[in-house]
Design a protein around this nucleic acid. Structure first.
Lengths: 181, 181
DNA sequence: ATCAGCATGTAAGGCGTTACATGATTCA
DNA sequence: TGAATCATGTAACGCCTTACATGCTGAT
C-alpha cells in the first residue's frame, strides 16, 4: 500500500464487505462516505491496479454476460491484514479545510452583510445535507442487526451531531454580528 | 492568483490585517487558523513570490537592523480587491477528511474494542484541542471591540461548538457499541 | 560550544482532480 | 436516434508536504 494514500484503505474497506468493480467503489464513496471522504475515478483505478500488483486485491472471473468488460475485485488475505493493521494503528489524521471559516476569519475588510450572507450559504448547504443524513439514519435503524451496519450508523450519527452543531453556530454567529457593534 | 490555490487568500487575508514576513505568516497559520486550515513553508514562500509578480503583494524596505535578511510583505490595492472578490464569491468548498470516521465505517472486520479504542484516541485529541480553543475564546472576549476580533471570535466559537459535538458523539458512540449486540 | 528559534528558499516526489478517450447497453 | 448510465482507463497538470540547504542570533 502506498504510504500516504488513504484511498487504498477506503477501497480495501469496501471490498472487505463485498466484491466490487471500480465503478461500484466510486458509487459507494459518493454515498454515505462522501460526508467524510472523497475519491475520483482518477484515483480509484490506479490504486486498484497498484494494489493488484501488491497482492492486496485480485480480479475475479469477469462475468462477461453483459456487454462491456467489467472487472470485479476481491480482497485477499494480505489485503485484509493490511486493513486490520491500519485499523489498529493509533494515528489517524483528520484533515479539515473549511473555506467558509476562512471567509469568516478574513471577513473584517468587508461589510458585515457579506459575512452574514456567507453564513447563510453555508447554512443552506448544511440543512440539505442534514436531511440526507437523517434519511440514511432512518434506513440504517431498520437493519442494525448486522455488525457492519452499526459501524455505518456510527458515522451517520457523527454527521448528524456535527451538522446540528453547525446550524446552532450559524444562529449564534448571525446574532453576534447583528448585536455587537 | 492561482486558480485553486487557497493559500493565496490566507496570505492575503493575513496581510490585510498587518504587514508580515513569510515566517510570521507560517506562525499565524499554526495558531488559531490551524483548526480549519493548514499551510507549510513550501507552499507559503512560492505563493508569496508568485503574488509579488502579479502585484498582489509587495516587499517593504527590509529593516536589516537585525542580522539575517528579512522580507516584510505588504498587501497592495490589487491584492485587497482580489481578497474582496473572493469573499463575495458564493462558492466555498469545505473539504473534510476524517480518517477517524473511515476507521469507524470499516471497523466491522475487527473486534469492537478496536473501534472503542479509536474513539478514545479521537476523544483525547478533541479534549486537548477544546482547551486551546476555550483559551483563545477567553482572550478574544477581552478585546471584542475591534472589528477583526469579532471575525476571529466567530471561528473560535465554531470550533468550540463542533468540538463539543464531537465529544457528545464519542459518548453516544461508545454507548452504542457497548449496548447493542 | 551547541542548541533552539528566526528566516528564506528549493527540489523531489506524492497525491489527487479534471478532462479526455473509448465503447456498450438501455430506454424514451 | 440520442441521451443516460454503465464501465475502464490515461494524461496533464496543479497543489502540497517533506526534506534539505543555508545561515544568523541569543541563551545555556
Amino acid at each position: 500500500m502506498a504510504k500516504d494514500r488513504k484511498i487504498d484503505v477506503v477501497i480495501l474497506g469496501l471490498l472487505a464487505h463485498k466484491d466490487l468493480t471500480g465503478y461500484d467503489i466510486k458509487k459507494q464513496i459518493d454515498g454515505a462516505i462522501s460526508f467524510f471522504w472523497k475519491g475520483s475515478f482518477g484515483s480509484i483505478y490506479p490504486a486498484l491496479s497498484d494494489m493488484e500488483k501488491q497482492g492486496l486485491v485480485k480480479r475475479k472471473k469477469a462475468d462477461s454476460t453483459s456487454g462491456r468488460e467489467k472487472i470485479v475485485y476481491q480482497i485477499t488475505k494480505k489485503g485484509k491484514d493490511t486493513l486490520k493493521t491500519w485499523l489498529k494503528d493509533e494515528k489517524a489524521t483528520n484533515d479539515l479545510k473549511y473555506e467558509t471559516l476562512l471567509k469568516m476569519y478574513f471577513g473584517g475588510i468587508e461589510d458585515r452583510s457579506v459575512t452574514v450572507h456567507n453564513i447563510e450559504i453555508f447554512e443552506n448547504q448544511v440543512r440539505g445535507d442534514l436531511k440526507v443524513l437523517k434519511f440514511y439514519k432512518e434506513n440504517l435503524e431498520k437493519i442494525l442487526d448486522q455488525e457492519d451496519h452499526i459501524h455505518y450508523y456510527l458515522t451517520v450519527t457523527f454527521g448528524i451531531e456535527t451538522y446540528e452543531a453547525y446550524l446552532r453556530w450559524c444562529n449564534k454567529a448571525k446574532k453576534i454580528l447583528m448585536d455587537k457593534r
